[in-house]
Design a protein around this nucleic acid. Sequence first.
DNA 1: TAATAACCGAGACGGTACGTCTCGTCTTAGG
DNA 2: CCTAAGACGAGACGTACCGTCTCGGTTATTA
Lengths: 214, 214, 214, 214
Amino acid sequence: MTSQQAYVRPLGRPREARADRAIVEATLELIAEHGVHGFRTEDVAARAGVGKGAIYRRYRSKDELALAAVADLVYEELAVPDTGSTRDDLLALMREAVALYRGSLARRLFPSLVGAMGQKPDLARALREGFLASRRAVLTEVIQRGIERGDLRRDVDVDLALDVLGGPLFYRLLITGGPIDDELAEGVADLIMRGFGPDPSRRPKATTARKRSR
Amino acid sequence: MTSQQAYVRPLGRPREARADRAIVEATLELIAEHGVHGFRTEDVAARAGVGKGAIYRRYRSKDELALAAVADLVYEELAVPDTGSTRDDLLALMREAVALYRGSLARRLFPSLVGAMGQKPDLARALREGFLASRRAVLTEVIQRGIERGDLRRDVDVDLALDVLGGPLFYRLLITGGPIDDELAEGVADLIMRGFGPDPSRRPKATTARKRSR
Amino acid sequence: MTSQQAYVRPLGRPREARADRAIVEATLELIAEHGVHGFRTEDVAARAGVGKGAIYRRYRSKDELALAAVADLVYEELAVPDTGSTRDDLLALMREAVALYRGSLARRLFPSLVGAMGQKPDLARALREGFLASRRAVLTEVIQRGIERGDLRRDVDVDLALDVLGGPLFYRLLITGGPIDDELAEGVADLIMRGFGPDPSRRPKATTARKRSR
Amino acid sequence: MTSQQAYVRPLGRPREARADRAIVEATLELIAEHGVHGFRTEDVAARAGVGKGAIYRRYRSKDELALAAVADLVYEELAVPDTGSTRDDLLALMREAVALYRGSLARRLFPSLVGAMGQKPDLARALREGFLASRRAVLTEVIQRGIERGDLRRDVDVDLALDVLGGPLFYRLLITGGPIDDELAEGVADLIMRGFGPDPSRRPKATTARKRSR
DNA sequence: TAATAACCGAGACGGTACGTCTCGTCTTAGG
DNA sequence: CCTAAGACGAGACGTACCGTCTCGGTTATTA
């Protein structure tokens, strides 16, 4: 039976992969130069060497184009670290996030992206279900393993933990302009370990946090 | 010696105070509906019942108008709570913040505000130095008092603490869409108390933070 | 009693008469250069020194603009010549028509105008009822006078006469590309005089025309 | 069953004759509906049930397609009538022309064809040298025969005569919208006979109509 | 009281980017 | 090599919005 073979090649000339890449790259360059709102679709077309039609065949609007370009920049396979230490696993992920958001492009990109999310539910959903969900899934796995390992309490509010890990980073990126560096990564990782670590009053002898500090 | 009396009434017909208010209010409503970029000056004029000229006589650009409107909205006096309990003081401030950001106007305002901050340094500075700084000052005072009281460690990274308090809230507001409620307020307050509480290994007996959580 | 004074000045800034003229003139030039369909609205705007908005505030579409421009061009007062000689009157009118259609603007304008008439009943009606009707009225008067004077037969088919006077001219202009000159004017005028001149059969000897109808 | 043919079949799949007809017919219908410029190649393809490629393999451009379609409609062998009577020969040709231009398709086709001629010299030349020249050649022969026969003056301006025969018909078709009927055919034929007939003042006894019958 | 000056609402202005559309060509898989 | 389907680069279309300017008219202070 071929019914499982769901993919049917669409009729007609296929989209050119070359154009796909060129459009995204031109968009990223122009966003970096003029901002998420400041760039012009005509310039994207010109720089990518395509017609405007080729852009609007792929993306319904300028905003969707900007989103896709950013998504392309930001999506990457995320390996679940497994160092044996919950703190080190968290730290690895946080450091990677720090590295991503320190980049000048991502730093200039996110604010307007967030602004657009408020106006375009589609974009918000796409970002949440794609980029965000994948990162949260990885963090969740690390936390679950930490619980099983006994490094974290059984009743950890996982959502809160995720938001405490990610929140301060975005807060600095979007609002305060504070430094996004490894100190931040270590700070929140340690706070999670300490705040959600096993209750010392119950198990006075086991002090995970101590061991972690080498 | 009248030189100190600097004010000279300008010639001609004075500006109408009625229009001043109407413009700001119409702007706020329209920003909430369509975002800091999405609203139209013509709509502001129409809703305020003024001409576009009246707007541009007061503000040099759409951005300046948006900034002024937001500034007008956001400034308010903030009392420093003093319940005697560091946790309760934090909780009071957090609950107030929760109440503010649950409100539909602020909730719709902030995303586009953040987006605009990325492109307009003036707006970003105004918001950081006004709204944000005042809230951080109050929280800082509560934390300092907590340290002096011995509820918190002496070496608390205050900036990190502030970002852990505020970050998750904004993260949910702007990114995840997660719930902004008292559970969140309590979660982060407890995490701060626990994570930045006095080191139990150093002073195994005194555990103020423990007791407060009952 | 001011009720007869129906005109109420519209609110706001009035349209600029300068722009009205400039738009129509630029349109005519560009139609002559590129045809009723071939000209570009952006070029009209540029040549007229106005924005595209100023054009579309006045005309709902490119077609309506073209129609208005042509209508503006084509209306002019036409005097009825009265030299005392029917042939000379006809000749005067024909020479004037020749002069008009030799002109480079009209010569380039008419072909695409005719093409458009086939597609746009509005344009066709406007042209027929304005430009064409006024010229036919003048010719009709000359012919009537010729009949009364005895220079032409009483039973002249006036419509046919008008079409024989105008047809060859347009035929050369639109189809054959043949010369439009005074020789043509004289040729058709003489043909009309000779072909529709008084019937020699009434002056009892010659009866050619009568017999033909059998 | 094709092997018996000496004709060497070109490589590959042969063109479908079905498509040839369908393309031309669809083009004619769409030109009649929207004009020579107004129709869309995509609509032609859709209505003919072919791809755009099939059209552009046959015709190099939209204009060439339009021209070919019109040519297909309009070209037909034209016999030189020879009734023995110059008037009747002219009348036969004029009646045939009337029949052609009364048809609703030709009537809708010509205006935009003329419009296009003004912008496309190639099309104008093709139409003049093909369709038009063949008709003028036939008429010229009839007139020459008329001269030789003595029905028409020796010094007839043949070009003018042709334009007087064809002009009024096109004038009504393209400009005035007047009736195109046998009355018109007879009117211009009689006018030519009378206006270009032998000068009665010079040869007072010989009546043209007499001679025609030889 | 009259003149002067800046205000008022309404809306046209020049300019610019948008997103759509069509042209004529090119590129697939398949007959 | 043909076919239908549909993507391609190019560029005009008509719309929308910006920030400015121009109306007739209003509201203050100064003369």
